[in-house]
């Protein structure tokens, strides 16, 4: 193929693993086992988790163009499913997370029926509204969800209940989740189905004329994205050991889902990961240093940075990197 094979590219070509990705994986593995202060480990746990979640969102949002601002609903459904199974029926989360994923996929299918034909702002607003319906339902269905008081998981460490004393275990768990999301994305990236997603995203009519059913493709992409998001929600619950509807199903959470891939680079496998590796630690550090001093200051700084980043790097970090490597490659 025409891409110069000898060049080490920063942003990997479609369907291949780059040196950059392997280096990043090694770094992640080191972070899992390295003796790091606990508060930093907490940040890394969240970074891995959000990288996995953003990767899941990207399958729908970046690859298929389904810009969802309702992913908090899938996240919440996953979190509540495994937690309710554990707290009320004593089902181990090792089973529960998959149930959460399945239920989220099912809800993804319902959402697809509602809004997979819609475009642009109509799609965005419908997903926002659907997530609000789920949030209000969770808030008011107290017998199941505990309502606004929320649900708590017993903090006693017990591997059967997926509750661990060691942060290393959580790091490994979240990295495993990230790798699952990432592997699925790479699989899609290099396959025929990946191209179908791109086609449905870029031009519905042309996709149809090429024999691709854009609505079916979008539905499958949304279901897959929802399933992965649901699994991530369960893991989040197992890490925080507490859930309430505003905590997990708020529009802010949905916003985070879309933000990380947008900053990292939409529709690239590596983009959401880079987005989370940059944004999650930054927002956590801002929160811990400034959050206690002046209420709102850290989020004000964070959002101002966000505005600047999206305005000046519209194709994200991955786009900026591949532009950089393209320029370098052009000279050689």
């Amino acid at each position: 193929m025409a891409q110069s094979p000898g060049r080490i590219s920063l942003a990997p070509a479609r369907g291949t693993l780059s040196v950059f990705e392997i280096a990043l994986l090694v770094l992640c593995l080191v972070l899992v086992v390295a003796p790091i202060p606990q508060n930093l480990q907490d940040i890394i746990v969240l970074t891995f988790l959000w990288a996995g979640l953003a990767t899941a969102w990207n399958i729908a949002g970046g690859y298929t163009g389904l810009i969802s601002f309702g992913h908090a609903a899938f996240f919440g459904i996953g979190a509540y499913t495994s937690t309710i199974l554990l707290v009320r029926m004593n089902v181990t989360p090792w089973v529960g997370i998959w149930c959460g994923g399945l239920l989220a996929a099912f809800c993804g299918a319902i959402l697809a029926v509602i809004c997979v034909r819609l475009r642009g702002p109509f799609f965005i607003l419908s997903t926002l509204a659907a997530a609000e319906v789920i949030r209000i339902a969770a808030l008011n269905w107290s017998s199941l969800t505990g309502g606004p008081e929320g649900l708590a998981i017993s903090p006693a460490a017990d591997p059967v209940n997926m509750v661990f004393a060691s942060k290393h275990a959580y790091l490994a768990l979240m990295l495993g989740y990230l790798l699952l999301s990432y592997a699925l994305t790479k699989l899609i990236d290099g396959s025929r189905y990946g191209y179908y997603l791109f086609a449905a995203r870029d031009d519905e009519d042309a996709a149809s004329a090429a024999g691709v059913n854009p609505l079916a493709v979008r539905t499958v992409a949304l279901m897959l994205s929802a399933a992965l998001t649901g699994i991530g929600g369960s893991l989040f619950a197992q890490y925080f050991l507490y859930l309430d509807p505003t905590f997990v199903i708020s529009p802010e959470v949905s916003f985070q889902f879309a933000l990380l891939p947008a900053v990292g680079g939409l529709g690239t496998a590596i983009g959401p990961v880079l987005g989370s590796f940059l944004i999650t630690p930054m927002s956590e550090l801002l929160r811990s240093y400034l959050g206690s001093k002046v209420a709102g200051l850290h989020l004000a700084i964070y959002s101002a940075l966000l505005i600047v980043v999206v305005l000046y790097f519209p194709s994200g970090i991955a786009g900026a990197l591949s532009g950089l490597s393209r320029r370098k490659g052009g000279k050689s």
Binding site: F198, A199, D202, D203, D205, A206, A207, A209, G267
Partner: peptide, 9 residues
Amino acid sequence: FQIPKPYRR
């Protein structure tokens, strides 16, 4: 298509 409809990305 009369007006080409490429997949732009």
